[in-house]
Computed example of a mutant assay.
Amino acid sequence: MSTLPLPEGDWIRGITVRQPWATCILVGKSPENRPRPWSWRGWMLLHTSQQTDRAALRLPPVARTIRGRELPTGAVIGVARLTGCHQDPDSAPPCGPWSEPGRWHLELADVQELPLPIPARGHLGPWKPTEDLVDQVLQQLPALRP
């Protein structure tokens, strides 16, 4: 475990995503679709909302991706690094199989699943986690650093 102190300031944020989409991100879904662009870049806690998108459970790509996996809600289930945000040009093909036309696409990298979900509250848009929540995440992923 690293003994180096974490830097001061804003090195990590949270993103709240409904299930089963959050679990799909853990398994490789990219990009994450959003209605507005995000200017912030860096590490993000992947938090699941209290609500599940029931209709999404019936979509074949989603069903294949989450098969056999638990879908915890109201918890941090992993981390990812937000590396960019873009929107596909109108005449261009989609940037990936999960991209939705007309939406902003969050480009996520270095996705890591937590061994145990951490119950937590999230918010709309990028949110700043408490120091205690970050400490709990670092107990499970001690090598995570900005």
Results as ranks from 00 to 15, higher is better:
P31Y: 00
I25H: 07
A22C: 07
W38A: 14
W21S: 08
V17E: 05
N33P: 02
P35E: 04
V17H: 07
P37E: 02
W38L: 07
Q19P: 07
P35V: 03
T16F: 00
W40Y: 00
G42W: 02
G28K: 14
W43F: 11
T16A: 06
P20K: 08
P35N: 10
P31V: 09
V27H: 14
W38I: 09
L26P: 11
P31N: 13
V17Q: 07
E32W: 05
R36Q: 03
M44A: 13
C24G: 07
T23V: 13
A22W: 06
M44D: 07
C24H: 06
R18W: 05
W21C: 01
R36A: 02
V17R: 09
L26M: 11
W38M: 15
S39W: 04
N33A: 00
E32F: 03
W21I: 04
W21L: 14
W40P: 09
V27P: 15
L46D: 12
W21K: 05
K29W: 02
P37W: 00
G42Q: 07
T16H: 08
A22H: 08
P31Q: 15
L26V: 11
S39Y: 05
W38G: 06
T16N: 05
E32P: 06
A22E: 06
T16W: 03
L45F: 09
M44H: 09
L46G: 07
P35F: 01
R34I: 02
G42E: 08
T23Q: 13
N33V: 00
P31M: 05
S39V: 05
V27Q: 14
V17G: 10
L46I: 15
P37C: 00
S30D: 14
T16P: 09
W40F: 10
R18M: 10
G28L: 10
L26D: 05
R34E: 01
W40L: 09
Q19L: 10
P20H: 06
W40C: 08
P31K: 13
T23H: 12
R41M: 04
Q19Y: 00
L46R: 11
C24M: 02
P37I: 00
L46T: 13
W21D: 03
W43K: 13
W21H: 07
P20E: 04
S30H: 12
L26F: 09
Q19M: 10
G28Y: 04
R18G: 02
L45Y: 10
V27K: 13
P20V: 01
I15Q: 03
I25V: 15
L26I: 13
C24N: 08
I25W: 07
V27L: 14
S39C: 06
L45N: 10
W38H: 14
V17N: 08
M44T: 06
P20L: 09
I15L: 11
E32R: 12
W21P: 09
A22F: 03
P35Y: 00
E32A: 15
W40R: 14
T23K: 08
T23W: 05
S30Y: 07
R36G: 01
N33G: 06
V27C: 12
L45H: 11
W40D: 01
K29G: 01
W38K: 14
L45C: 14
C24A: 14
N33H: 03
G28F: 03
R36L: 00
G28P: 15
R41A: 01
P37S: 01
K29L: 05
G42Y: 02
P35H: 03
L26H: 15
S30W: 07
L26N: 13
A22K: 03
W43R: 14
K29S: 12
I25C: 12
K29R: 15
T23A: 08
G28T: 09
P31C: 12
